[in-house]
Every structure is written in C-alpha cells, then in structure tokens.
Design a protein around this nucleic acid. Sequence first.
RNA 1: GGCGACGUGGCCGAGUGGCUAAGGCAACGGCCUGCAAAGCCGUCAACGCGGGUUCGAUUCCCGCCGUCGCCUCCA
Length: 451
Amino acid sequence: MLHLYDTATREVRELELREPGKVGIYLCGPTVYGPPHIGHGRATLAYDILRRYLEWTGLDVRLVSNITDIDDHIINRANRENRPWLEITTKCEEIWWQAMDAVNFKRPTDTPHATDYVDEMVELIAELIANGSAYVTDDGVYLSVESVPDYGLLAHQSLDDMMAGGGEREVFGAGQKRHPADFVLWKLSKPDEPAWQSPWGEGRPGWHSECVVMSLDLLGEGFDLHCGGQDLRFPHHENERAQAVALGKRFANHWMHHGFIVDAEGEKMSKSLGNVNNLLDFVEVYDPRAYRMVLLQSHYRSPITVNADTIDAATNALAGLDSFVARTAAVPAAGADPAILASFRAAMDDDLDTPKATALLFDTVRQANAALDADDASAPCLVAAAKEIAATFGLELGRVSEVPADVAAQAQALDRARAGKDYATADSIRAELQAAGWTVETTPAGTTVRR
RNA sequence: GGCGACGUGGCCGAGUGGCUAAGGCAACGGCCUGCAAAGCCGUCAACGCGGGUUCGAUUCCCGCCGUCGCCUCCA
C-alpha cells in the first residue's frame, strides 16, 4: 500500500483508506483569472501521476479539484480591464482545461465551482457564528483562530511565533479583528462588485470556505487525502482545516504538498515574481511530455529546475523511449515481467519515488532492447513491463505521427536507392528528410520516418 | 526575528553509517551499418567548508558560508 509523507505528522506513513478499495482526494485547483503557468503544471501533473498510479493498483479514485471562480484577483482584473468578471472566469477556465489537456492531465472526477456553493458556504458561516467561533465586523465575517485549539498544525508554528516576525505585508481587515491571524469568511461587497445575499449583508465568500464545503460535500468527513502546493499549507489549508475543526467535523486524514518550480537562479517561479511561464506558450515550443518527464525524474517534494536545458535533456530521453516503442510495435503481446512490476510498485509505494521508478523504466527498456538485439525470448515480457510503467506515468510514447504522402514516397525512394546501391541518392534523400525535421531510421526492414 | 528545506560528476537529479554513490542528458571509444540513425557494450567524472560522535560519515550532531520557501489570500 502507498506510503506518503504527511505534512501534518511530518512523516512518511501509510495512506489509510476510509473505505477499502476507494480513495477520495481533494486537490486545490486554480483561481481562474489568468493563464496557467508552469507551476500550475507541476501542481496538476504531480497528482495526475499519483492518480494514475492509484488506479493502476486497482483503486477506485475520486479526485475532486475545485475551480475558484470568485475572488479579489478576478474582480481586480475585471475592473482594470472594464470587463464583466464572468467573462474572465469563463475564458480563463476554458484556457485552463486547454492547457491541462495539452499536458495530458486526466480530468478530475469532479470539478466543483465556488459560485455553485455559495449557499452552502453561507450555511457554514452561520453555523460558525452560532457556535461562537466566528464573528461579524463592519466589513465581513471572520473566523477566530483562537477558538481552534490546534491551529498551526500544518504551519508547524504557534500563533505567537507566526506573529513574531515576518509582518511586512499588510494585514487584511486589520481594523476590527480580534486577533491578527483571524481570517475572513465573508466579505461585504462594495457597489458594483459581484454579490450574493447573506444574513450579514450582500457580499462574497472568502477564499478558504469553498474548499471546506466542497470537499465535505463531495468526499465526506474524514476523506483520505488533501493535496496542493507547499505554499497552500499555510494559510490556505490551515484555514480550511480550522473551519472544519471549529465545526467539530473530521477533515482530511492525510496532507500531501508538492514542491515548487524554480528558475535557473533557484528562485520560485510564480506570479508574485512576475516571471510567468505561460503553460500554453510552453507546450507550443516544447514537447509537453518532456515536462512530465522532468517531473518524474525528480521527487515531488523537491524544488526542481525547469529551463531549456532540463527540458531538452528530457526531450532527448523521450526520443529514446519513442524509438523503443517504434521498434517494438510488432513484438507480440505478453504478460509484463512480474518482478519488474513488483519493483515498480515498491518504488512508488515509498512516497511516490518516481526517480527510482523512472530509473527502472530506463533499465527495463535497455534490457528489452538487448533482448531484442539478441533475439531472446524474454523480450516480449520486458517490452510489456516497460510499456505498462510508461502508461502508468501518463507518458504517451510512440504516438504515430501523420506522415504525408510525399514524405512516405521519399522514404520509399530512399529504400529503392539503397537497394540499387545508389548511396549518393539515398544520402541526399535522407538529408532532405532530416532537414525537414523528420527522424529517419533506416533498418533492414525498411526506412521509417517520424517527427 | 520564527519555522522549514537544500548545497552530489560538464548539466539535471536520486540515494546510503562501511559492499563498485541510481538514472537521464552531454562527451568519448567499440560493436552494428554502404555511411548514418536507433540499439547494445564500455569509458570519463561528484558528495559546500570546518569541527565533533564513531572502528568508519557523503549520510548523524554542532558551527560557518551560500541558496531557497513559508510567516494573511501565490500551485
């Protein structure tokens, strides 16, 4: 069974399932106010790999990932560009899924929207007020963090310590808060802002409530796993949890957080730094699979470097795998080598050790190639194991590229020239094809071309 | 200031109290090939600095240097 690092307990421990055979996962999704950057790519691919692996082990996975479609960022952009906010969220969500499809992210089983859950959030907030853990001020409703006994569980810092330093940023709603760390549950709206009815006046929900309401609604109390970026650990996840605790409800059993993309200088790549790498631009320039490969070759909790060098290296590694799949197209189907699959499973069960599992994949490919070269009977099982691992990683290998008729004709001409020992012609045809971007592989069985 | 992470060969990136410190990319040599490509075989080369614990440390502890993250709305 899978063992995962749990942020709450700070140890690698077994992912205990509430219900055998089924796993419920909540993944904090995007706020749709801009194009996704490559950091979002890691956020989704890390869990895409987790999800595919869990499914491969035979579990029934329910993956809930929200769309935050009401938020200050959205309102600010709408004001700045003088557009309706709904137009922004609709457009950005469309772009989000376009990018996710491009990196082969398997769609979550549920993608709830914050704006569809406003009534439930209002109910939640009312309950929190009723039991004394939330209070109303001039500008909204706040949760009193002092009413949550183990507040700071995920931050691993006491409230006092958190307050001690760091406060260079402006404290939101500082005026009437009882404690500086109290956070807003409901924001009263200003004129012309999107607003919903509530007992405390027209307004909109704060950031943290939607995830509590939606995860509990779709996955239920004590769901198995809650995921997101390391930056969401605090305050976002801490504050989600605080609301559930204040309600007396069991929340996530296990917390998983992934590391960041850093740039060549080792700095976090994020919107706040302004060095955005738009994911759609990225997949236009590079093979989207190369990004997945870079992620697979490092651990999900490590910060990783994504730049032209690392992507190029991954692209080249992928070329070898594509060649492997191309040369094994005619290898008869067989059961995957069980020892290799067992090693794969052992690596993945150990806190998703994809670097080790990826090393195993390359080693299996090498063994399979050697077996094929030697005409050894073990080849089909090795080939099957390699393909199964790659498929579980979500790597689509050896995609058959469309070969235009004229290119196919050139390949045939190349073969004819070689058959007639007209090597000058053969070489010039090959050079031409290569110049046009085709990978040309001349084998005894004939010439194949692919992109 | 508090909490935390990290510094491994040319590049990326695993890992371990002591057998030959993964894997990928790059480079180089060989086999194969008409020549290539792909593949296979092989070579090259690393644990920030200084102490300590230990029979032994890259791994544990302390200090230093350097980098990064979080500390109220950023995946």
